[in-house]
Computed example of a mutant assay.
Amino acid sequence: MPRITFIEHDGTAHQVDAANGQSLMRAAVDNGVPGIDADCGGECACATCHVYVEPDWLARTGQRSEMEQSMLGFAAVAQDNSRLSCQITVTDALDGLVVRMPDGQH
């Protein structure tokens, strides 16, 4: 089971074991990680599961879809490494992934 580290804006780290096939958002919500609001429930209809993927991991998390890119337009501080965690599917290749969360979800 891949282990994912979510780091809050204040530096607090949360390591979770995530099942293959689930989204990063679902792994965070199921494990009580604060800062992933997931208002739309993973439908890519908001930006409240916004994370920053560590640069070394970007290629492994896949490309943003047009819909994800559009939704990131609602994020307060989108960056080149911004992703919606609902759009990243957990695989064994993501074991050790580190994502950071913004100061707040907007």
Rank of each mutant, 00 (worst) to 15 (best):
residue 103 D to Y: 05
residue 63 Q to E: 15
residue 87 Q to D: 00
residue 20 N to W: 06
residue 5 T to L: 06
residue 97 L to K: 05
residue 77 V to M: 13
residue 33 V to F: 10
residue 62 G to L: 06
residue 100 R to P: 05
residue 87 Q to H: 01
residue 58 L to D: 12
residue 76 A to Q: 13
residue 10 D to N: 15
residue 69 Q to I: 13
residue 9 H to V: 02
residue 56 D to F: 08
residue 89 T to S: 09
residue 21 G to M: 02
residue 96 G to L: 07
residue 73 G to I: 08
residue 68 E to P: 05
residue 65 S to K: 00
residue 56 D to E: 15
residue 69 Q to T: 15
residue 46 C to N: 06
residue 34 P to E: 07
residue 63 Q to T: 14
residue 63 Q to Y: 13
residue 83 R to E: 02
residue 59 A to L: 13
residue 40 C to V: 01
residue 55 P to E: 11
residue 85 S to R: 06
residue 36 I to S: 10
residue 9 H to D: 11
residue 1 M to T: 14
residue 33 V to W: 10
residue 47 A to R: 05
residue 29 V to N: 04
residue 23 S to F: 06
residue 35 G to M: 05
residue 87 Q to G: 04
residue 73 G to W: 09
residue 86 C to K: 03
residue 68 E to Q: 11
residue 91 T to E: 12
residue 11 G to M: 08
residue 43 E to W: 09
residue 46 C to L: 07
residue 68 E to V: 09
residue 56 D to H: 11
residue 16 V to K: 04
residue 16 V to H: 08
residue 27 A to I: 00
residue 31 N to H: 11
residue 104 G to F: 15
residue 55 P to I: 03
residue 89 T to I: 12
residue 27 A to N: 07
residue 32 G to E: 12
residue 36 I to Q: 08
residue 88 I to A: 05
residue 11 G to P: 06
residue 36 I to L: 10
residue 25 M to K: 02
residue 76 A to R: 13
residue 44 C to E: 10
residue 77 V to K: 14
residue 91 T to D: 08
residue 15 Q to V: 11
residue 87 Q to L: 03
residue 92 D to G: 13
residue 85 S to C: 10
residue 17 D to Y: 13
residue 10 D to C: 09
residue 59 A to I: 11
residue 57 W to C: 05
residue 40 C to N: 07
residue 42 G to E: 08
residue 41 G to W: 08
residue 83 R to F: 02
residue 40 C to K: 06
residue 104 G to N: 14
residue 94 L to T: 02
residue 93 A to N: 12
residue 40 C to M: 03
residue 65 S to I: 00
residue 47 A to N: 00
residue 75 A to M: 08
residue 65 S to Y: 03
residue 75 A to K: 07
residue 92 D to E: 15
residue 40 C to T: 04
residue 29 V to R: 12
